[in-house]
Design a protein around this nucleic acid. Structure first.
Lengths: 196, 196
DNA sequence: CGCGGGTTTGATGATGCTCAAGCCCGGTGG
DNA sequence: CCACCGGGCTTGAGCATCATCAAACCCGCG
């Protein structure tokens, strides 16, 4: 059960995991199962867990004053899930996270997580991943302020094609910051263009 | 000249800086001066330097296919400047960075920078700052996809009031992802509302 | 068969963009 | 000392993009 996770860490690190490290990791990460629609985190709560998705699909979103959901982040197998800010600062989150499909997640609480950062491979992976995450966010900000809806879709298709296969269109639309109707129209136009 | 920088590091770290550390830092960070409009980085180049702004103001922006500039990030005294992605990965940057005001910047090349991460206080500061930066980006993404122009302005006013004082409106508008005309109208309306 | 979740289509309207003109103000040079 | 110029800000009119609202459709499933 932990193999996928352990080999994920190895892939991201040059330092190998000792047997003791593996033991520490499997002891401190516990498996949680979430059924479709079940919450991992609700707005206003402090995010107690940071998790690694073994299977399934989860979504993180905010809700505006009109009650509309805005998808901030999507996680599938081999991605992390959690609100980093709330987790690190122990402040109430402004986001909700729930399971879009039935999911299995390896979670760790903050103290445990920090302990495990003593493991060189774990520290290295976390650092690299945080970096990668920051780069992705930077690009997403750039896309959001400088591109039109259609170009943002293209960018997403190039960056995370998996997400498009995995989530329904109205979720993708929300992720892009547009409505499902607009996304539907864009796709039809794009399809026509490609036919020509 | 380096005092401001050294005390900045101390502020962000629990580990103190030894005299040897200070010597290493001052030796590896070199002062560069940029005159207004001078480039720190141009699109297509690899970002060779990561810098700490001692004085002045700098802007990072992308240019779209119509030639319009989109401000991604603004840096003033005691902020960092540079394209982290290009710097870390040694890939050509998609951004430009130039001086908005005459500026003094302490810069370090990648090798030197990585060396200095051996210094505990420097490593700690970098980690905390990267974290903080990631949180800010997350919030900016959220704002971009879920808020209207007026609310985005409010958020900026609350988060970085200094930027509003320091940069002209058309720069702020670009940072918010709107045109200068729209920003102007929003501000007038907001002013009227507050009068009532 | 009917229901729920998702997608599509159409009509209408708001938000924000574009283009163009005018204004304000500080700086420079005649 | 004034004229002019550049940079920035404002205002207006028309327009594009995208949101909203409503209805129909599609399809897998109990």
């Amino acid at each position: 059960m932990y193999e996928a996770f352990l080999s994920y860490i190895q892939d991201y690190s040059v330092t190998p995991l000792s047997e003791a490290d593996k033991e520490t990791l499997t002891r401190n990460f516990t498996l949680k199962k979430y059924r479709k629609k079940q919450f991992f985190l609700q707005e206003g709560e402090v995010c107690r867990y940071h998790g690694f998705v073994l299977s399934g699909a989860m979504r993180q979103y905010s809700v505006d004053d009109k009650g509309v959901e805005h998808v901030i982040r999507l996680s599938i197998e081999n991605w992390w899930v959690g609100d980093r800010e709330s987790f690190a600062m122990s402040t109430p989150s402004i986001y909700n996270i729930d399971a879009w499909e039935d999911s299995e997640v390896l979670v760790a609480e903050k103290d445990r997580f920090n302990e495990m950062l003593q493991i060189p491979a774990m520290a290295e992976m976390t650092r690299k991943l945080d970096e990668k995450h920051a780069f992705a966010l930077q690009r997403r900000v750039n896309a959001a302020i400088s591109l039109q809806a259609e170009q943002r879709l293209e960018e997403l298709e190039n960056t995370y094609p998996l997400l498009l296969q995995r989530f329904p269109q109205h979720i993708i639309a929300s992720y892009l910051g547009i409505t499902k109707e607009t996304l539907s129209r864009i796709r039809n136009q794009a399809a026509k263009k490609n036919q020509e």
